[in-house]
Each structure stands twice: as C-alpha cells, then as structure tokens.
C-alpha cells in the first residue's frame, strides 16, 4: 500500500504528449502513418499531404493542428527533392519565381480564410468538404488511368503536343522564359501559383496534384522541368503556410511534424526501392481505392446525422 503514486502512474503504452495539440499520442502510430504515406509518396511520386491530413484528423488530432503541422512536414519532404533538381538544373527559376510569388500570396489568403472559417466554427466542415472534392477527383482519375493501363487499352498515339501559348503571350507584360522556351505573360503562372497557394494554406497540402497538371496543360511547360519547378514552388509555399499558421493560428505542432518527418523518410526510401521492382499499375489502382475510401469516409461524416446534436469545443 506504500507505493508512491506518481503523475505517470497511469501510463499504459508508449505515449508522447504533443505540446501544441495538447493531447497524448502513441508516437509509433504517428510514425507508422508517416511511413505509410511516405511509402506511397516514394512509390508513386505523389506528395501525400492530401492523405496525411485526413489520416491525422481520423486519429483525433484537431483539424487545425493537422493542417498546420502537415505543412511543416511537407517542407521537409519536398526540400531535398527541390535541392536535387536545382543541382541538376531541372528547375525553371524564372517561372518558379512567379509561381512562388503567386503561391505565397495565395497561402497568406488561405491562412486568413482558414482563420475566418475557424472563428465561425466552419473550418472542420470546410476542410472535410474540400477533401471530399479533391480526393474524389484525384481518386477517380487515378483509378480510371490505372484501369485503362491494366486492361491495356491501346493508347491512341498522342499527336505531338502542339504548344498553344498564343493567348498567354497576348496578355500584358509578356516576357521570355528561357529555360521553358516560352514567351508568355507572367499572369498565368501567378494565378496558378496563387490557386495552389490557397489550397496549401487551407488544406495543408503541397498541391502537386493540381500544380503539375496545370504546369503541363495550362502553362505548357516542358515536362523536363515540371517536377523540379513544382517541388521548388511547394517548398517555398508550404514554408510560408507553416509560418503563417504558426503566427496567425498557433496550430503548428513541431513534435507532431517531427514524428511525421521520421516516418516519412523511412517510408519514402522503402517506397522508392520497392516501387522500382513492383508492378506499378495494380498498386496505383490500390492507391486510388485508398484515396476513394478516405473520400467516402469523409463524405459519410458530412452527410450522416451527427450522433451528438451539438459540437462542443473548449475555448
């Protein structure tokens, strides 16, 4: 009976208290989640932010903290890729600068929007809704693409991509972008960067899944510089999103981000190694199904009547 009761006497499993989220988590589970998403990133070259943030929310991390901390995680997971592409000179720094400028402004707008919605109690609904739309879109596109590849639908030999840039060079301030061999106005890259920046600020994603198609199909950039330039933009924009979330909302949990970084690094390395050996199309279909499942779960939560009639939050 003379045992000394200490504050940690109730500790059952491994627990780590997150200083900003103000809750204990099992660090191994968070690391495993980071590794699982990192694995997919390494295998498919997707950023993974769009899966990580909903997973964190399902685990019970407050959505606001999930978004802020995931932004910090994406900085870590994109910076090394961006550095490698800079060394290989596969970044169009000129267009990149405009994408970053638009993106930084977009991220700031996104964080302000985030704060506005949070003050009105609508941020959780908004984040969930935004994810339903984007995951639904990305998931069904991926599924369609991989199914096409699996049943080996003969690809129509794509006609040589003709660059349609006349409308962009007709816009004001048209200038020459040497690395991409384009003569266009900086307004389209600014706008593309801005849209992705808003997503980054509100949803805690890098936005590569929007940015890359936009660079290829709208800006008509050569594919050789697309990946490098998008990583370049994502690193800067998520960095600004992280700082803004920390400053405006105080929702960046660096301990949570560190756990995700550890898991992500391990997972990505395994993903890269395994991805080279495995049959990609089936796996891509599987990833698409995971994405759609996450989307459906969020959709059900939004549309089914909540179990409790009120949402309670301690201020």
């Amino acid at each position: 009976m003379e045992k000394v009761l200490r504050p940690d006497a109730t500790r059952l499993s491994m627990q780590l208290y997150l200083p900003i989220a103000e809750m204990p988590v099992d660090p191994l589970i968070i690391i495993a989640m980071g590794a699982a998403v990192g694995f997919l990133s390494g295998m498919f070259g997707v950023g993974g932010g769009f899966l990580m943030t909903p997973l964190l929310i399902f685990y019970g991390i407050p959505p606001a903290v999930a978004v802020g901390s995931e932004a910090a995680h994406i900085v870590a997971s994109s910076v090394s890729g961006a550095a490698a592409h800079l060394r290989r000179r596969t970044v169009d720094l000129q267009i990149g600068a405009f994408l970053v400028a638009g993106g930084v402004f977009g991220a700031l707008v996104g964080v302000v929007l985030f704060r506005y919605l949070r003050d009105r109690g609508q941020i959780d609904t908004f984040i969930a809704l935004a994810y339903v739309v984007f995951l639904g879109l990305v998931g069904s596109l991926m599924l369609a693409e991989s199914l096409r590849a699996i049943i080996r639908e003969p690809k129509k030999s794509a006609p040589r991509r003709r660059r349609r840039t006349a409308w962009m060079s007709a816009l004001p301030f048209a200038m020459r972008f040497r690395r991409s061999q384009l003569y266009i106005s900086p307004i389209p890259p600014l706008l593309v960067g801005f849209s992705v920046g808003v997503l980054s600020g509100v949803m805690g994603v890098g936005g590569g899944f929007i940015l890359i198609p936009a660079m290829i199909y709208i800006l008509q950039m050569p594919t050789a510089v697309v990946i490098g330039t998008s990583l370049f933009q994502i690193t800067f924009v998520t960095a600004v999103a992280t700082i803004s979330h920390a400053a405006a909302n105080k929702t960046v949990d660096i301990v949570l981000a560190a756990l995700l970084i550890i898991g992500g690094v391990i997972g990505a390395q395994l993903g890269v190694r395994l991805g080279a050996r495995l049959k990609a199309e089936q796996l891509r279909a599987l990833l698409a199904l995971v994405v759609i499942a996450v989307c459906l779960r969020l959709l059900f939560e939004l549309t089914l009547q909540p179990a409790a009639p009120f949402r309670m939050e301690a201020l």
Partner: peptide
Amino acid sequence: SAFYEFAHRRPLAYGVACVAFSVVAGLLAA
C-alpha cells in the same frame, strides 16, 4: 512548456524555427 511558450509568446519566430527545422531535417535525411 518550452514549445508551448515559444509558440504562444513569439509565434512568428516559432514558425520560422519550425521551417528551419523541417528544411534541415529534410536535407539531412536525404
């Protein structure tokens, strides 16, 4: 306490520190 105080008393500096940490961690891991 250190993290909490830093994040709430000097939020901008904390944000910059988080980014610096992420950049270093990302480059080191690679």
